[in-house]
Nucleic acid binder design. Structure first.
Lengths: 136, 136
DNA sequence: AGTAACTGATTGTAATTTGCAAGTACTTTT
DNA sequence: AAAAGTACTTGCAAATTACAATCAGTTACT
């Protein structure tokens, strides 16, 4: 499934047009996860080989970087680059769509409502927060 | 790959989290396509069995409806429902992301620039246009 | 009326991707 | 020294996708 076209939608889908990639990015952006274990343990139970594959791909594509935790040689912290952080608006719109058409848990509903009310500002703040993480 | 979780992102991805579904919707929304042949002939060369599968799924999920062309019994016109049309913001954001990070054809670049300048208004107009199509 | 082209599919088979369970190699904790 | 935690890797079965061919009804042409 390689390079079907130069269409912007298609080019984007060649990176995150699958069932798992955006879930990993969601975990980082909304659920505070940043290690292999974190991702493995998330609700949807991604398989370890798929996870490894996607992490390599996302790094290759420049959406995230690996950093070893200082004082914890074995631990690897996955951090989004700006290119990755900039998927925030995409995830917001997907969330908004689900909020309108899917039955969600009341937890998710209030969470999404907050996001909708916060809107632009909240997205900017979130982006700033992750850019800080990236640069330290 | 069924019902991994109730997370809004995941629920959405279970519908359009693959390489093809959003391309079909893009074709309808941005490229004026609305028949099986149209979709088959688009740049990325979707296989006919995959296309058939996705169209059935999208109808089942309520994102599009089939209408037979009056005066052309064989021809089936695929039309987005509001649920489908409401993926417009998602596609916009994906386009914006690609505009920032991918090398695009100059054609696509000017197209996306127009969309960015048009912004909200353009999205509203597009939605109205497709709602009209749906209701006639 | 007969034939060719067009329509939305379906079928069969090979290639690819995913899912699952187990294992590896190294590090940190106890 | 042993146990638990870390990021993966491996092997194999199952599911999905890709590709080419075919089908059956409809429309257009002569």
């Amino acid at each position: 499934m390689n390079n079907k076209s130069l269409c912007p939608i298609n080019q984007a889908l060649e990176i995150f047009g699958d069932k798992w990639t955006l879930l990993i990015i969601r975990d980082i952006l909304f659920n505070g996860k940043n290690t292999y274990r974190d991702f493995l343990q998330s609700e949807e139970k991604i398989a370890s080989n798929i996870l490894a594959d996607r992490l390599v791909m996302l790094e290759k594509e420049g959406l995230l970087v690996k950093k070893t935790d200082p004082g914890h040689k074995q631990k690897i912290i996955y951090t989004l680059t700006e290119k990755g952080i900039d998927l925030l608006p995409v995830l917001f719109e997907i969330g908004a769509w689900s909020a309108k058409y899917k039955t969600l848990s009341s937890e998710d509903k209030t969470h999404l409502k907050k996001l909708r009310i916060g809107g632009e500002k909240l997205q900017k703040d979130l982006k700033k927060k992750f850019l800080l993480k990236l640069n330290k």
